[in-house]
């Protein structure tokens, strides 16, 4: 594998808000993104996936958030970069799109101005050139009649078109890394399919690396090269997508897969959910946070915090496979669950 574009090393985010217990939202998260690679961060609400992305983009408020560790982008440490230098990088080299396209766009500024602003800001183009490039960009993301759309305001576009406009803004300066935080969660499935297809195309054409943050394993299955599964602020499992879905090793990953009704699955198969909710987590200090919800729980789970270690007992497909579990799922376990469900 080539040298990584983004190296996230022991990234931790601790919320220290007034009048509240300090809370570690992201706990020593480490992962790399190679140029052009699509990396997934998957997990449920509260697993720290969004906070991770905001920390990488340095979009967390200084006050009340303690960010430690290191984030190197093309060799430059981002966490210690002066604010002005970081602003230059944001939008030009790293860009981000969010779940809610309406609140991410300025409601009183026309789409065209918002897109061309990015171009004038980072490319120093004059306004006419920027406007032309903005129109090209809108066309590229599949917004029909782009020159007319430039003058329209966000509320005049549908949800799908807004997300396209946002993608146009994010990709206007051809960034080397795009972070997409639940980009399709607020959209309908047919629109989601359009947006995912668009993202895949653009990323492939331009060689942009993509960090896809989502709760939807279905989205990950079709899109990501490597997948990181997060739970309680830590990465619990990492693998390439094929081996991950074929042989989930962490009980949480397995539980997620058992919880999703599959469109092509056996309709009579009963779902095998994870019990409880995130509220039942215990601290990672001397235990596995997932233990209270885990079907595989054993004696070490509440006394020893598991480490993220290379996992060689399962299919790796030549990629790095990591696992944070004392008692991972075996083929026999998976078989047992399948039989129970059928």
């Amino acid at each position: 594998m080539s040298t990584p574009l983004l190296e996230v090393d022991d990234l931790s985010v601790r919320f220290t808000r007034q009048g509240q217990e300090p809370f570690t939202a992201v706990d020593k998260v480490t992962f790399n993104v190679a140029p052009g690679e699509v990396v997934g961060l998957v997990g449920e609400s509260g697993c720290g996936k969004s906070v991770t992305s905001l920390a990488i983009m340095r979009l967390l408020a200084r006050r009340g958030n303690q960010v430690t560790g290191s984030v190197r982008f093309a060799g430059t440490e981002l966490l210690t970069l002066p604010d002005a230098a970081m602003r230059d990088k944001r939008g030009a080299e790293l860009a981000m799109i969010f779940q809610d396209p309406l609140s991410s766009l300025n409601p009183v500024v026309p789409i065209g101005v918002q897109v061309s602003e990015v171009i004038t800001r980072h490319r120093g183009e004059n306004r006419a050139v920027a406007a032309r490039q903005a129109a090209e960009m809108l066309d590229k993301v599949g917004i029909p009649d782009p020159t007319r759309r430039l003058k329209e305001y966000p509320h005049q576009l549908s949800g799908g078109m807004r997300q396209r406009a946002l993608i146009a803004m994010a990709l206007a300066c051809e960034p080397r890394l795009l972070i997409a935080d639940e980009p399709t969660t607020a959209l309908d499935v047919t629109i989601q399919a359009q947006i995912l297809a668009l993202l895949t195309d653009l990323v492939e054409q331009s060689g942009t690396a993509l960090i896809m943050i989502t709760h939807d394993l279905g989205v990950v299955a079709g899109l990501c090269d490597g997948v990181n599964v997060l739970y309680g602020g830590r990465i619990v499992e990492r693998a390439k997508r094929h081996p991950l879905f074929a042989e989930p090793r962490h009980p949480y990953t397995g539980g997620l897969l058992g919880s999703i009704p599959r469109l092509d699955g056996d309709r009579d198969a009963r779902l095998f959910p994870i019990r409880g909710s995130v509220a039942d987590n215990i601290p990672w200090d001397h235990a596995c946070a997932f233990a209270p919800r885990c079907h595989q729980e054993g004696e070490k789970c509440r006394t020893v915090a598991p480490d993220l270690l290379p996992d060689e007992e399962a299919r790796t497909d030549g990629g790095l496979r990591l696992l944070r579990c004392h008692y991972p799922l075996t083929a026999a376990d998976r078989q047992r669950i399948e039989e129970g469900r059928a």
Binding site: Q194, L217, G222, R262
Partner: peptide
């Protein structure tokens, strides 16, 4: 048909081979 083809399946093998019917435009 379009709706069925748009729903992601949590299985990369299926996802890689599925035919997609992408609808254009919005509701």
């Amino acid at each position: 048909r379009a709706l069925l083809s748009a729903i992601p399946v949590p299985d990369p093998v299926v996802e890689d081979t599925r035919e997609r019917i992408l609808l254009s435009g919005d509701l």
